[in-house]
Design a binder for these strands. Sequence first.
DNA 1: ACCCAGTTACCTGTAAATCGGTAGGTGATG
DNA 2: CATCACCTACCGATTTACAGGTAACTGGGT
Lengths: 191, 191
Amino acid sequence: MVRARSEERRADILRAALEVIAERGYRGASLGSVAERVGLTQQGLLHYFPTKEALLVAVLEERDRWDTSGGRDREGWRLDLLESLVEYNAMRPGIVQTFSALLGESVTDGHPAREFFTERYALVRANMAQVLRLEFGDRLPSGLSPERAAPLLTAVMDGLQYQWLLDPAAVDMPAAFRDFLRLLHGGEPRP
Amino acid sequence: MVRARSEERRADILRAALEVIAERGYRGASLGSVAERVGLTQQGLLHYFPTKEALLVAVLEERDRWDTSGGRDREGWRLDLLESLVEYNAMRPGIVQTFSALLGESVTDGHPAREFFTERYALVRANMAQVLRLEFGDRLPSGLSPERAAPLLTAVMDGLQYQWLLDPAAVDMPAAFRDFLRLLHGGEPRP
DNA sequence: ACCCAGTTACCTGTAAATCGGTAGGTGATG
DNA sequence: CATCACCTACCGATTTACAGGTAACTGGGT
C-alpha cells in the first residue's frame, strides 16, 4: 500500500499548493510554505515534484482534469449549466482566487503558465461558441455569430470574478452573469 | 534646478517600474532591476522611494492621475469614448499588461494594491453606470438598469484584455468590444 | 567674491532573510 | 536486500533594507 499512500500525499500537496498560490500567487508561493502546510520539509516536497514549475504544472493539469470531467465530459455544456457553474464558483472563492491570480501572473513574460492559459482560452472560446450555437443556432437574437459572442461570454465570466474577488459584497456574481445571459437572449425578461 | 532634476528622476523611475512590473509583475519586479533600468543602484532608488511598496503606490497614483485627467475630467465619459479608449489600449500592450498583471496579483491576500483596486472598481462601476444612464436613460433596451449593466461593461473590458494579452492574434479586442456595445444597444446593426 | 552650513543625490558595504535546488544519508517497507 | 519516503545539511543566488559616507550644489552672511 505504499503506492496509495504516495498518491494521497501528492493529492495533499496539490491541495496545499492550490491554497498557497491563492494567497500569494505563483511567484510568491514558496516551496517551503507549501511543504509546511502538508507537514513536510521543503526537500521532502521536492521528492514528489522535482521543481517548483513541475508543481505548478501538476496543479494546472489537475484543474484541467477536474473541470473537463465534472459535468462537461468533452463537449456537453449547455448555457444553463454555465449559469450553475458560476453559482458554484461563487461558493468556492479559494479556487477562483487561485486561477484568477494565476491568470493575472501568466501575462507576464516567460511565465510558466502562459502557454497553458493561451491554449486553454482558445479551447474555452471554442467550447463557448459551440454552446451558443447549440442554444441559438448560427445567429444570436442580437445578430451576433456564436464565434463573435464566445469571447464576450468568456470575458464576462473572468471579469466578474475579479470584481467579485475584490469586493464580494459589491458584486452579485451569479446575478450579474444571469443579466448577461438575458442580454444574449435578446433582453426580454424570462418566464 | 536641483528640484526639477529630482522630479525628472522620479518620473524616470516610475516609468521604469511600470515596465518591469509589466514584465515580471509586482512580486517579480526587484528594486535592483528597476534601478538598473534607470541607471541607478538599488540603494539610489531607495533614496527616492523608501520601500518597494512606496514605489508601487506611486506607480498606481500616477496611473490614477493620468487617466482621471486625460479626456475624462471627472465624469466626462461617453460610450463612444469608451470605444476609442479600448482602441487606444489595443495599441499600448505595455500599460495594459502592467495593470492586468497587477489586478491579478492584487486578489492575493495582503497585496499592497488590493485596496487600491477595490476602491478603483467601485468608482469605475459608478462611472460606467453614469455613462450608461447618459446614453440610455434609466433602462437599457434590454430592460437592464444602468447599475446592473455597469459591472458587465467593466467585466467585458477586463476580460477581453486578458484574452488579448495572451493571444493578440486570436482576439480582436476593439471589434469584440464593439460587439458588446451593440448587444447593449439592443442588438440591431448600427447605421 | 568668498566661505560656510545645510540639503540633496547618490554611492559602497553589508546585514538578514529567503529562495530553489543538490547531495547524501536513514529508517521503514516489501 | 532493494526500493521508497523523507530528512539533515548545505550551497549559491537573490531579495529588501539599513548605515554611513561623499561629492555636488544651495542660499545666506560677510
